[in-house]
């Protein structure tokens, strides 16, 4: 069964149809790309999947469950993790703490356990800390893990965001323009990282402007334009689709 299945999702802001009848499915273990010109509705779709927006019509199934109007933290708990287009880290906390916060949904310590500092809490805390440092090493953060998030470089912040999302042990990792603002080497490293994440069994949904990155990385790609899905398929197919070419380059005069 497909991991994620959207059926006829619609979302409007006032008179603007940000999304119109978008249906797509993502299979387990694939890297699925979402591309489209600026304002095509990619991030809106992301926000619907992660519970930040409630769709006006349609519904989606994730991992066999149907969702309508679910809160972000519920979806995170059920296995959808995301990063943000304009990085949203916990700026005044350390890199390690940022990732440990990602473990929140997978840990249980409550108020009493925390105050008493019971054996169970201590063990959980240690496991959480170890897992967080492991993830930071995995995404390749070279700086000390006690560095404040705001003192990391742009590329490092992007990596930290991915580590934080991975800490929630997602089934589906949704990356919103992870390569934005990165140089060629950083993009290459990112590509390797995303492949490694997929190899560890996590399905990846990727929004990206860098068409080259998408084409080299994704198993399948969907193209949005003006809130509608205009094409879907393997990268080579999509690249030669006349509708996609006209959306990106304008309609040919002939």
């Amino acid at each position: 069964m497909n991991l994620l299945e959207l059926s006829r999702i619609g979302k409007r802001f006032g008179g603007l149809n940000a999304l119109t009848d978008v249906s797509l499915h993502i299979e387990r273990g694939e890297i699925y790309g979402l591309i489209g010109p600026n304002g095509a509705g990619k991030t809106t779709l992301f926000n619907v999947i992660t519970g930040l927006y409630q769709p006006d019509s349609g519904e989606f199934h994730f991992n066999g469950k149907s969702y309508r109007g679910a809160k972000p933290h519920v979806l995170a708990g059920d296995g959808i993790a995301r990063t943000f287009q304009n990085i949203r880290l916990f700026a005044n906390l350390t890199a390690l703490e940022n990732v440990m916060i990602g473990r929140h949904v997978r840990t249980r310590a409550g108020v009493m356990g925390s105050i008493m500092n019971s054996q169970a809490t201590r063990l959980e805390e240690k496991a959480c800390r170890d897992k967080a440092s492991e993830l930071l090493n995995m995404v390749g953060l070279k700086k000390p893990h006690q560095t404040l998030a705001k003192n990391l470089s742009y590329g490092e912040q992007r990596r930290l965001e991915i580590a934080r999302a991975l800490a929630t042990e997602p089934l589906l990792l949704a990356l919103d323009e992870p390569a934005a603002g990165m140089n060629a080497t950083e993009t290459e490293n990112l590509k390797a990282l995303i492949n490694a994440i997929r190899d560890s069994g996590i399905t990846v949904l990727l929004i990206e402007h860098d068409v080259k990155l998408i084409m080299g990385l994704c198993d399948r790609v969907a193209v949005l334009d003006y809130g509608r899905k205009i094409a879907e398929g393997v990268p080579d197919e999509v690249r030669n689709d006349p509708a996609v070419i006209s959306a990106y380059l304008g309609v040919d005069g002939e």
Binding site: T50, G51, L52, K71, P72, H73, A76, G77, A81, R82, F84, R88, L89, F90, A91, N92, L93, E97, M100, I101, G102, R103, H104, V105, T107, A109, G110, V111, G113, S114, T121, E124, E125, C128, R164, A165, T168
Partner: peptide
């Protein structure tokens, strides 16, 4: 504790905090 970190996450960025499952 886990609770304290969650509070600080909310202080720093509430939307990101809820997206992280808080």
């Amino acid at each position: 504790s886990r609770i304290g970190r969650a509070w600080m996450a909310i202080r720093e960025d509430e939307i990101a905090a809820s997206a992280m499952g808080i």
